[in-house]
């Protein structure tokens, strides 16, 4: 056979049907572009992330610099000019802090918490689900019981209980979100891996005595990751919502590093007196952020799930 490559040429490369289940990046981007809402959401998201990223350069004031605050500037309406010159485009809060700057920095904290909590929860959940599905037996039972237990309670309740025990703090909020969210990834991953592990390439790997950890990490993980990535985008939004809710309730981030949720809370008592902007603008930022993440995530899910194309 090796001397006569003829028969091989009769099966030209490229005639094999393209793999349907692995959409390439170009196709996903094309699909995002083909929907105006998803496209708008993607643009809004990019702007918000850029704003958060470059907050120190964009913000007219440093909201963390308490010495720079002037109590005379408190609760100024949007568009008011300050005594030293700059205009407070989104008004000020009860301590005279520029709301625009506070929102830019708050956006930062919300995004940092949302992204890092999601990354950690997705990593832990993915590995746990992988382990449960591949190892099976008592390991699977133990992991899945824990998953069922965690998913059996409302997320906010579990997070509230955890934080009331640990106290406030950015790291503690992240930890609480990870604890309530990893279970969902574990459940999804287990299902995907159970299907994937039945494919013959996994059997082939076992027949080459490839160690189990390698089968899991090199063979199963990359092939079972697509649903996790889709869910993770949507979960970033719910992690941000959860953080905001916890901060709004006063058990989340500390007042020294206010996130969007805490900013909303700080303006809450002035809402009825007509000083809407202290709560409204952070709320608006939060809604746009969460909404655009969800829209992009949904679109991503559609483009990956062949049934919904």
């Amino acid at each position: 056979m090796s001397q006569s490559p003829e028969p091989v040429r009769s099966e030209p490369v490229g005639l094999a049907p393209a793999i349907l289940e692995t959409p390439n990046r170009a196709r996903i981007l094309a699909r995002l572009r083909s929907r105006p809402t998803a496209r708008g959401a993607a643009i809004a998201l990019v702007i918000l992330i850029a704003a958060a990223l470059f907050a120190p350069f964009l913000a007219p004031h440093d909201p963390y610099d308490l010495a720079a605050l002037s109590i005379f500037d408190n609760r100024l309406a949007p568009g008011t000019q300050s005594m030293d010159g700059p205009v407070y485009w989104l008004g000020t809060d009860s301590q005279g802090r520029d709301m625009l700057s506070a929102i830019l920095y708050g956006l930062r904290i919300s995004l940092v918490v949302g992204l890092s909590a999601t990354a950690a929860a997705a990593t832990i959940g993915t590995l746990m689900g992988l382990l449960a599905a591949y190892v099976g037996g008592a390991v699977e039972t133990a992991i899945m019981r824990l998953v069922d237990f965690i998913l059996g309670f409302p997320t906010i309740l579990v997070a509230l209980i955890l934080l009331s025990a640990t106290g406030r703090g950015v790291d503690k909020v992240i930890l609480a979100i990870v604890i309530v969210q990893w279970a969902q990834y574990a459940r999804i991953m287990r299902g995907t891996v159970l299907v994937e592990a039945r494919k013959e390439y996994v059997e082939a790997a076992r027949n080459f005595a490839i160690p189990g950890w390698r089968i899991m990490l090199v063979h199963l993980l990359p092939n079972a990751l697509a649903p996790i990535l889709v869910v993770a985008t949507v979960q970033v939004a719910s992690a941000i919502m959860l953080e905001s809710t916890l901060s709004f309730l006063g058990v989340g981030v500390p007042i020294t590093e206010p996130s969007l949720g805490l900013l909303i809370a700080s303006g809450f008592e002035y809402l009825l007196s007509g000083e809407y902007w202290i709560s409204f603008f952070p709320g608006l930022a939060l809604v746009v952020l969460v909404f655009s993440i969800n829209l992009v995530g949904d679109r991503l899910r559609e483009s990956i799930d062949p049934r919904r194309r």
Binding site: I19, T22, K199, E200, Y201, E203, A204, P222, N223
Partner: peptide, 14 residues
């Protein structure tokens, strides 16, 4: 082993 399904028997990402 040599498998029946030439699609499922190779890891698509390797």
């Amino acid at each position: 082993l040599v498998f029946q399904d030439p699609y499922a028997s190779l890891n698509p990402r390797r």
